[in-house]
């Protein structure tokens, strides 16, 4: 702070003092003695640290609410029981659309009655299957309705692994808590567990940038089979009369 500024400040304070005469002059003196920059810097640092703490630690805690899944499903166990990997339950329908989370209709083929000892299975059979109610699973990867995503294009045509986007869910023995974003209503897994938005694995985040990064990489020449262009090439072979967008990065390719 320059001298002239100090003067201005002093003058201003004098004006203040002259009006509030009962104020002790000591404070002013103390200030003068300690110099102006010390406490100010301290306050600045305090503000900085507190806000960093809020932003990095408290905010994420407040932002998400924790919800338990209705049934603690054991993926690893079921993987041993089925022949066709993930697709045994998360299958493609006859029309090529992806069924997503299984419905009672699929579970019932094995779990019409309680088979084992697991309390989770009992919940499934007694609370849902026998009452003809669907299990209200909370879906970690649920995207807003405006997002168009074709599983077939990625899994069938570009031969990608489920875990590339979903991670090694098949190896898990428990379902983690579903952390719901209180503002947007979507799962924490979309933004990613790290509030910084940084990721280590390809499945850590499911935001648009992550789609774009992968598509960019694919289009960059290394692995063209992941390119959306390829998808549209294939599309135009199947539907020769369909209008194929010129630029595959166009918004409406993924956004309805």
């Amino acid at each position: 702070m320059g001298q002239s500024e100090d003067k201005v400040q002093e003058m201003a304070e004098e004006t203040l003092d002259s009006r509030e005469e009962d104020l002790p002059h000591e404070t002013d003196k103390n200030k003068q003695e300690n110099g102006p920059s010390g406490p100010i810097l301290l306050f600045f640092i305090a503000g900085l640290i507190i806000s960093l703490l809020i932003g990095w630690v408290i905010f994420p805690k407040l932002l998400y609410s924790q919800k338990k899944q209705p049934i603690d499903f054991n993926h690893a166990f079921h993987m041993q029981e089925v022949d066709n990997g993930c697709e045994s339950c998360h299958f493609f329908r006859d029309d090529g659309s992806f069924a997503g989370v299984p419905k009672n209709e699929q579970c019932i083929s094995c779990h019409e009655e309680v088979l084992g000892e697991s309390p989770n299975e009992t919940i499934l059979v007694e609370e849902y299957i026998s009452k003809d109610r669907e299990v209200p699973w909370l879906i970690y990867s649920k995207q807003p309705d405006c997002v168009f995503f074709s599983h077939a294009a990625h899994v069938k045509m570009a031969d990608m692994e489920c875990s590339t986007c979903h991670g090694p869910v098949g190896e898990s023995t428990h379902l983690k808590d579903y952390e719901e974003n209180r503002i947007s209503g979507y799962s924490r897994d979309i933004w990613g567990n790290a509030i910084s938005g940084l990721k280590k694995h390809s499945w850590d985040r499911m935001k648009m940038d992550d789609c774009a990064a992968c598509h960019k990489e694919a289009a960059g020449g290394k692995t063209t089979e992941r390119s959306p262009q390829l998808f549209f090439d294939l599309l135009s072979k199947v539907f020769p009369n369909a209008a194929t967008p010129q630029k595959t990065e166009a918004c409406f390719v993924c956004h309805k």
Partner: peptide, 11 residues
């Protein structure tokens, strides 16, 4: 300081 910290946080 708070503003600077907030900017440097993901909030």
């Amino acid at each position: 300081g708070g503003a600077a910290g907030t900017t440097l946080s993901p909030l």
